[in-house]
Design a binder for these strands. Structure first.
Lengths: 96, 96
DNA sequence: ATAATTTGGTTTATAATATAAACTTGTTTA
DNA sequence: TAAACAAGTTTATATTATAAACCAAATTAT
């Protein structure tokens, strides 16, 4: 009936992060923070979880002398995102 | 950018309950349990929260001798549900 | 030069949440 | 009349989301 929702994606901030990453080649920490409006701490934690799940990859380097954390969605992450969207539609259809 | 998601609706079970109720005149506890696959305990708790929020109403009575708990969505609940669906679309659009 | 502020984060503490297990009350069946 | 079932509720637990506090390095102000 109602499919189970991937708990990793059923989280406001993680979903926002994935939503941004689904639309761009790569996004760094600062950009994600700006787009999502999240606090640094929260964003850091959620990025870790998405990384641990294999949904995104994180590449740490420097832009000039400043640290920079670049994030990309993985194929697995993109698929999970699509599946989540599909699953959610089951829940939302009544509200159209 | 990303609108805030109503935390009362951003919950797998509560959303499923609202989804069912959005489509029918009224549904009783047993029916909701069957449709959502939830445990009684969980369902009971989430129904309470939706009631406290004014999103649904609960009417207790008897069907024959057996207790029955009938739930209906309220206008406020229906509106909240619509708003939630709209807000969510912002998050999902990248995944289409 | 050095003190103060900003940047780009991470770690840790807390409060809220979802969830199931255990329990209750009454009914039906063996 | 004992056992099993129905329809829930209460309570305990484990997870989560989130922000506050912290840290290191770079930049800016004095």
């Amino acid at each position: 009936m109602f499919p189970k929702l991937d708990p990793l994606l059923h989280s406001e901030l993680r979903l926002a992060v994935m939503s941004v990453l689904a639309g761009v080649e790569e996004a760094d920490f600062t950009y994600l923070k700006k787009q999502t409006g999240a606090t640094s701490g929260n964003l850091s934690v959620q990025i870790d979880k998405l990384t641990a799940a294999g949904y995104i990859t994180v590449e740490k380097g420097f832009k000039g002398k400043m640290p920079r954390t670049a994030c990309r969605i993985t194929p697995a992450g993109a698929e999970a995102f699509r599946n989540y969207v599909d699953a959610l539609k089951t829940y939302l259809s009544a509200g159209e």
